[in-house]
Structure formats: C-alpha cells, structure tokens
Design a protein around this nucleic acid. Structure first.
Lengths: 216, 216
DNA sequence: ATGTGATTGAGAATAACATTCTCATGTACC
DNA sequence: GGTACATGAGAATGTTATTCTCAATCACAT
C-alpha cells in the first residue's frame, strides 16, 4: 500500500507538469471541436449537425471527441452556454447606454427578445434552437448555461428595485428569472408565419412583463 | 379519358360506401394506436417510447402504423393535441366555478401551471414533455395543438376585459397568448430540484402575468 | 539513442431507432 | 370461386450516436 503522501516531491512535480501540458492540449482540442461546430452551424444555418461532421471539420478523430466530451449533448451545452454568455455581455454593454435602470432593463428585454427569435436570416447564435432538446435531456445543465444571463437580469432588476421602480413585494431575482424565461420562450414561439396575426413584438413583451395585463 | 362526371351514379355510391367503411376501420385503428401509446406513456411515465412498442401493444403492424400516420411525429402531435384539449376542458369547467372573470382566469392559470409541471408523480398527460421536440420539428402543428387552450384563455381574457379589469390598450387575444406561454414554459423550467432556491409557484406566476413587476 | 508506457488518429463495429419494403394471408364483393 | 384490395408479420435499409481495435506517435527517463 503506497499512500500518496509518501511519494517523493520530485515525482509529484513531474506528474503535475505533465498533467498541465496534457490539460493544455486537451483545451486546444476542445476548442477546435467548438470552432468546427460553430462554423458548421453558421454555415448551414441549422443546429442539427452530426458528430461526424464536427470531427471531420476539426480534423480530429471520433475517439478524441468522446475523450473530450461525454457525448454530443456536452458539445451542444458548451456552445449554448458560450452563445448565451456572449449575448449576455453584449446586452449588458448595450444596457449601460441608458440612464434609468428601468430603461436599461427595457433595452435588455428587447435585445434578448431579438436574439432569441428563430432564424432572422440565420444569425450566428441560434442558441435557442437547441435549448429545447437539451431542456428535455439535461435540464440541470441548461439551467447552469442560463446562469450568465440570469445574473445580468438579476443585476438590472435589482437596480430597478433600488430606484424604487419595482412593485412592492416582488423579489428581484425571481422577477428576473420569470422575465427572462418569458422573453426567451415567447420570442421562440413567435417565430411563426401565419399572416393571419402579426407576431408578438419585443415591445409587447416588455409591456407584458413590466406591467402585466391587469388594469383597475 | 373517363372523366369522373360520367361515372354511373350507382358506382359512385358503391365507392362512397366502401370508402365510408374503410374510413371507419381506419379511425378505429388510429384510436388503437393512440390508446396504446397513451397506456405506455402512463405506464412508464415517460414519452420516449419506440414506434415498435406502440405497434406491439396495439396488436397491429408497422405497416398499418405508417399507413395511418405520416411518422412518429404525427402520433405525438395527436397525443399532444388530445391531452391539451382535455386539459382545456377540465380547466374551463373548474374556472366556471368562480364568479368574477378575473378569478376565473386566475384559476385557469393556476391549473394550467400545475398540469404543465414535469412529472408530478407521473400523471397522465405529461404533455409538455414532448412539446419541445415538436416545437423544433413541426412548429406550425404545435401551434394548432395549442389552439384549444388558446381559445379558452382568450375567452377568459375577453371576459376580464368586458368586466373592465384589463389594462387599457391591451389586446385580449395577445395577452391571452402571452399568459398561456409564460405559464406553460415557466412551469416546465421550474421543475428543477436545486434545494438552493424554492421553485417558482403558481401564485407567483399569476402575480407576474397579471401585474408585471413594475411599480410606481 | 532506445525502450516503455501513455496518447492519439483512422475508422470498423455496434446499437438503437425510424422508416420502407416484400410477401403471404385474409376479406369483401361480383 | 375468382379478383382486387387491405392487412399483418417482420425483414431490410438508412441514419446516427457511441464504443472498440489497433497501429502510429509522442514524451521522456535511462
């Protein structure tokens, strides 16, 4: 029984060094898969690529893919989280251009709405496209992926609260969560076509989230 | 070139009769598939059954299945539409128990919320489970399936409007659509587990939809 | 330099399904 | 009874994800 505590220090250091370089290479490999997938998605404007396509494009091997990812879903999750994170950053920056907290939040809602619509000329994220599948198979991880965006909305909502513009009795974090979900999902479903009824607009969603429907 | 208009009447009638009985049998067969699928779903508490399971269970054949349905998605759609329709009926009945339109709507929201949650002890519909996949692959049909529920919510919202409890400038139909979507989707995502934060409740969703978050 | 053990690439094998096809059997109607 | 159509049983196909095999490569201590 050789306990780890009795290993000579030099050996530990050697192991650590090799682990570090291995990790570096692994990260590069992961990145290549991510880039390849992203390229394919923007190229064919759809999120249903096959693992094989990604592997070919990245000039790596299937084996390598499954060494880095637990499965296709992890790749999707990574892309999703990444896209959502970027989007959150852009939105945060844009919101900062407004003076009043309530306007910052409004801008954020409008931008999130726009970027969540399905395929407005095949932009880059399309990130809501794969959310549904993942929500089914890995709900917990999807929530993690939402974290960045939720943080942003919570920040904004808390500023609104501090400015005295939040209805009393409303918890900012929860209001932020509901707002975010509402915006994302309504954007997604409003992607329809029916010429019968004009689709729901960002402005309407903002009105709905901020003021509800109840009068009187 | 024998135009159909010159066919003798008796022949037309014969054809029609045989078509009618054929249609009857077809309907029965469809129903058996539907029942089998429903049974499997409630039995294993999940919506990912295989076509083969449904076929075996219904004691019919694959060939028959694909003669009745264009593919698995049509079966799912049929189940989905059916479940949603039933649910709408139940909710309508329950709402009728309230006096004030606004309370009727509140009850409807609460019930819809409850029945949209994922797996509260594996109830029968679970209908939101397959909505996501279908939303991806057949968005138009999903909208049709939503129709019954949307009709109900529009009715209720219009009564609210008539009672003067709708915020001015709000279109009842659109408010109904947004409310419905918000309720269904938030219910779905709130199915989580994290002991960290208590999940969002039906009451909170009602507050959110009806009054929004803005104060002042 | 060289042997050794871990890492990787190429791609074959497997598995799970949906979907289609073939053929034999049944069934209604003349 | 014969003919045309409907149906059942289940084999064949096609697509993917995932795993497996084996040989090439690399890192590195000696």
């Amino acid at each position: 029984m050789t306990g780890p505590s009795e290993e000579p220090a030099w050996k530990q250091r050697a192991v650590e060094r090799s682990i570090r370089t291995a990790k570096l290479r692994a990260e590069q490999r992961v990145q290549r898969f991510l880039d390849a997938a992203q390229a394919i998605i923007t190229e064919k404007g759809t999120t249903d690529f096959t693992v094989q396509e990604v592997v070919d494009r990245s000039k790596q091997s299937l084996r390598s893919f499954y060494l880095q990812f637990d499965g296709k879903h992890e790749l999707l999750l990574a892309l999703f989280e990444d896209a959502l994170g970027r989007s959150a950053d852009q939105i945060r920056a844009a919101a900062a251009g407004e003076d009043e907290p309530i306007d910052q939040l409004r801008v954020a809602v409008e931008l999130l709405f726009e970027s969540s619509r399905p395929d407005p000329t095949a932009q880059r994220p399309l990130f809501t496209d794969f959310a549904p599948q993942l929500l089914l198979t890995h709900p917990t991880e999807v929530k993690v992926a939402h974290a960045a965006m939720l943080t942003l909305f919570t920040e904004l909502m808390e500023k609104v609260a501090a400015a005295g513009n939040l209805r009393s009795g409303v918890n900012p974090r929860r209001a932020a969560a509901m707002t975010m979900q509402t915006v994302m999902f309504i954007a997604q479903s409003s992607g329809g076509e029916e010429t019968a009824t004009r689709p729901i607009s960002a402005e309407e969603v903002w009105e709905f989230c901020s003021r509800g429907f109840a009068g009187n």
